Amino acid sequence: MEIKVKLNGKNVIGNVEADTVLLDWLREKGCLSVKRGCDTSNCGLCTVFMDNKPILSCSKLAVQADGHEIKTLEGLQEEALEFVGFIADQGADQCGFCNPGFVMNTIALLRENQDPTDDEIRAFLAGNLCRCSGYEGQLRGIRNFLDSRKACTDEKNSN
């Protein structure tokens, strides 16, 4: 079955079996940030954007992406670069396996809410599984990023 997808800004045509999971198709296309963690839609490692909304690619068939725009972390490097260092500074990237899912969901959160509370951050990232850090490092990294961004904005406004 042929599908046409706008993948990270490029039009891609592919042939897939009817039962091919979007996660597998994306990895075949070189999007290695999309990871398999649970195959039960519980860990967030396979998060991608479909039409700018976060979805779990392990729970979508590739044929369901036909005619849609899909963005993976590979297509959002510039947007992600802003805060990835803040997460690393907090030791929240111990093994790094969960980072792409956290980054994708943080991008989605910040697109929706530019100044979330800690509870709103926790709620938005609740579907991400991290076996190493206990989540507090990710929260501190996101909070430090938001505080830094606010300080820059305040400084610009005072000049």
Score class of each variant (00 low, 15 high):
M1R: 07
M1H: 11
E2V: 11
E2L: 09
I3K: 05
I3W: 02
K4W: 02
K4C: 01
L7V: 05
L7C: 12
N8Q: 07
K10P: 02
K10D: 12
N11W: 06
V12E: 13
I13A: 11
I13E: 14
I13Y: 10
I13V: 14
N15R: 11
E17C: 08
A18P: 12
A18W: 09
V21A: 06
V21R: 13
L22C: 11
L22H: 04
L23Y: 04
L23A: 06
D24C: 05
W25D: 01
R27F: 04
E28H: 12
E28S: 10
G30V: 04
C31L: 13
L32M: 11
S33E: 15
S33K: 05
V34N: 04
V34L: 05
K35D: 06
K35E: 04
G37T: 11
C38Y: 09
D39C: 02
S41K: 13
N42P: 04
G44S: 09
C46N: 08
T47C: 01
V48E: 10
V48C: 14
M50N: 01
D51C: 12
N52C: 02
K53M: 13
I55L: 07
L56C: 12
S59E: 12
S59D: 14
L61P: 11
V63G: 01
Q64V: 03
A65I: 01
D66P: 00
D66S: 04
H68W: 02
E69W: 12
E69A: 14
K71H: 13
K71E: 15
T72G: 08
L73K: 14
E74F: 05
E74Q: 05
G75S: 09
G75E: 11
Q77Y: 08
E78L: 14
E78N: 09
E79L: 06
L81R: 10
E82M: 07
F83I: 05
F83Q: 06
V84L: 01
I87T: 03
A88I: 03
A88P: 00
Q90S: 07
Q94G: 02
C95V: 08
G96N: 00
F97S: 06
N99L: 15
N99V: 15
N99T: 15
P100F: 00
G101N: 03
G101W: 10
F102H: 03
M104F: 03
T106W: 10
T106I: 14
T106S: 15
A108C: 06
L110M: 12
R111L: 11
N113F: 09
D115N: 15
D115K: 15
T117Q: 06
T117D: 11
E120W: 09
A123E: 12
A126T: 07
N128W: 13
L129T: 12
C130Y: 00
R131P: 04
C132Q: 09
E136H: 13
R140K: 13
R140I: 03
R140S: 10
R140A: 04
G141M: 00
G141A: 01
G141T: 01
I142T: 02
R143I: 10
R143C: 02
F145M: 12
D147V: 15
D154S: 11
N157Q: 06
N159F: 12
